[in-house]
Design a protein around this nucleic acid. Structure first.
Lengths: 206, 206
DNA sequence: GCAGTTACGTGACACTCCGTCAACTTCTTC
DNA sequence: GAAGAAGTTGACGGAGTGTCACGTAACTGC
């Protein structure tokens, strides 16, 4: 079931994604055009549109690839967790390790014009947020966490993770452990002080 | 010193900014073109370029307007603070109140294509981060805060503020106080647990 | 107030990018 | 190996970009 047709299709798609990654890093997301991307392959302009609708969709595909790579790891950490400490430190440690590891792609997500930082959350990434939220609710039900506002707690963890990652990557040497320790301590200490609330089970839509 | 020349110049610039705000909200940042913006005014296309280099620069101007409006308030809160609690709760309360108040413009900053969230940090906004960092260092020197990693603490506060704001604005009713209470409790509790560190005085560049 | 000067608004222009599509090439199927 | 399906190609109409020579209206000094 993998004839030559299927093979070139895979190859072309990958070629576009690879080229796009390079070009995004080189020119920044805003400045790159669909033409820039295909010019970096040996394909014709029309071919691009057999695979993606726009440069935005390529960007999404790249981001989502990453999200799909980390999400299961994060999930596994949280499911394995038997204590609050494990839940939180496992999550942050995994995230920061990944960011340090794959910081080239992480840079693709972030980098733009010199004076502006951009962060985009693609559907897969947002799904990751919902997953964290769901796991927090489960942990609350299990009595692992106090009954705090799960949306806000999820939002806080997400915000801290992405923002600290940024500064972590700017340091030399890059130290994911230190970053994870910081974030973990913040939330472990904070959790004890957080107001408890009635819990909503509806999905969070921001 | 305010002849007719100067007046129309002010008026034109404001007309472009106002139109841009509307169009960004209506079409999303990515989809709007410079032409869309000037079409929403009664100016000619060439005139746009007498005032701004590109739609990106207009966007920056809009974001910066906001930053310039909140920054002094945040600063005042932090300088007035005599306790950690005042420092932190004052900062968050002011920020969330502003976000709730001016959520139309806040939406301009955030909204993009349906499935993607975007956050851009313009120079003025980033300057606001540096200001927070500086105030944290001052507070540490004054013995108000324990000697924690100021970059990471700043990053955490920024991340939590923006991320919670997003979810706060999605709720009905919008309750900035509750959001501020949550964030404040998180950091007050967290601060006690945070690892203490030697402090770097170099500016943070992420 | 009037000529000279400067500032700025205007829209046409040359250029680039976009997304599409008819023609062509290559693989697959029978 | 012929017929059909699948996929690639680049040229094309449409739209956006930034610029510039021109015209007009506001300032300046007399």
């Amino acid at each position: 079931m993998s004839g030559k047709r299927e093979q070139t299709k895979q190859a072309n798609k990958q070629a576009i994604l690879d080229a796009a990654r390079d070009v995004f890093v080189k020119l920044g997301y805003g400045a790159t055009t669909v033409r820039d991307i295909i010019r970096a392959t040996d394909l014709a302009s029309g071919t691009f549109y057999n695979y993606f609708k726009s440069k935005e969709e390529v960007f999404q595909a790249i981001s989502d690839e990453n999200a799909i790579r980390v999400r299961p790891r994060l999930r596994a950490e949280r499911i394995r967790a038997r204590t609050v400490e494990e839940f939180i430190s496992g999550t942050f440690r995994t995230f920061f390790d990944y960011a340090a590891d794959d910081r080239r792609t992480f840079a693709v997500i972030r980098r733009n014009a010199d004076t502006m930082r951009v962060r985009m959350d693609t559907p897969e990434i947002i799904a990751g947020f919902d997953e964290l939220r769901a796991d927090l609710l489960t942990a609350i039900d299990a009595g692992l966490f106090p009954p705090v506002d799960a949306d806000y707690l999820m939002a806080s963890m997400v915000g801290v993770a992405f923002e600290i990652a940024e500064y972590m990557l700017a340091r030399d040497p890059i130290d994911p452990s230190a970053a994870a320790d910081f974030a973990t301590a913040l939330f472990l200490g904070g959790l004890k002080a957080l107001p408890t609330a009635t819990i909503s089970r509806e999905p969070a839509n921001a």
